[in-house]
């Protein structure tokens, strides 16, 4: 034990501990919100009609919103496109990060590693458009609070530092994997050297920290939105005669 601690500098230990604690916080915090939403009664059915009549239909409706951002596509094409770039860029990059959970990279992740630079670019592009429109359009400026800008700036900084790690100052990916796996299995390891790496990690931790207490929860929140997740149960019990078209 003594030797193990010696090998870890205090700073490394702190980073590892922070990762463990903040990941736990994000998970527990999110679970708490889910519990809070799920346990609040929905006294009157308020689906936005025309609404699906079956549970299957509800799943399709929710998927269309979550996967395609359907309502946003109807509302505003620029925002929609920027959101698609950002969210799918981020998803792609996140999948790439799964490599750090494995000591040797699974071959299925190779394309994600190869293309992740482009994905990060798409993500950054989307984020910049989202930021610019928030600053330029008077309506969006009016509804924005400092946290709305900071969320975007945080994500942009994470993306930029990530790109820097890939292109400019490559890191010891194996070492990063060990650090990450260590923190998640409570066997903390040192983080490989690199200032940008530390910056990237700290920013990500900040994002995880605000996740359960901010609007970032919207992704899960949609599923609980009664306007989208409730069925039109009255339709089934309507009169027998089928109106023709």
């Amino acid at each position: 034990m003594q030797g193990y601690l010696n090998r870890l500098a205090v700073f490394d230990l702190l980073l590892g501990l922070a990762l463990t604690v903040i990941v736990a916080w994000a998970l527990l915090g999110t679970c708490f919100k889910l519990y809070q939403w799920a346990s609040t009664p929905s006294p009157l059915p308020i689906p936005l009609t025309p609404a699906p009549r079956t549970r299957y239909g509800v799943v399709v409706r929710l998927l269309a919103e979550i996967v395609l951002f359907r309502a946003l596509a109807k509302a505003n094409r620029v925002t929609w496109l920027a959101s698609v770039f950002f969210h799918y860029g981020l998803l792609f990059v996140l999948i790439m990060h799964v490599r750090f959970f494995f000591a040797s990279i699974p071959s299925s992740l190779l394309p994600f590693i190869v293309w992740s630079g482009w994905a990060a670019l798409a993500m950054l592009l989307g984020l910049c458009v989202l930021l610019i429109r928030r600053i330029v359009v008077d309506r969006y400026r009016y509804i924005s609070t400092p946290s709305d800008y900071l969320h975007l700036l945080l994500l942009i900084s994470i993306g930029l530092s990530g790109v820097a790690l890939k292109r400019l100052w490559p890191v010891d990916t194996f070492g990063v994997g060990e650090f990450l796996r260590g923190a998640l299995t409570l066997q903390w390891q040192a983080l490989p050297d690199g200032v940008v790496l530390v910056v990237h990690l700290v920013l990500v931790l900040l994002l995880f920290f605000v996740f359960p207490i901010s609007k970032l929860l919207h992704g899960v929140g949609i599923v609980f939105s009664p306007t989208l997740n409730e069925r039109d149960t009255s339709a089934r019990s309507s009169s027998k005669g089928k109106p023709s078209q």
């Binding site: 919100k33 946003l72 924005s144 709305d148 929860l217 919207h218 949609i222």
Partner: peptide, 9 residues
């Protein structure tokens, strides 16, 4: 909780 101030509305 879930509004992101996306401005679509």
């Amino acid at each position: 909780d879930t509004c992101t101030k996306c401005g679509a509305c």
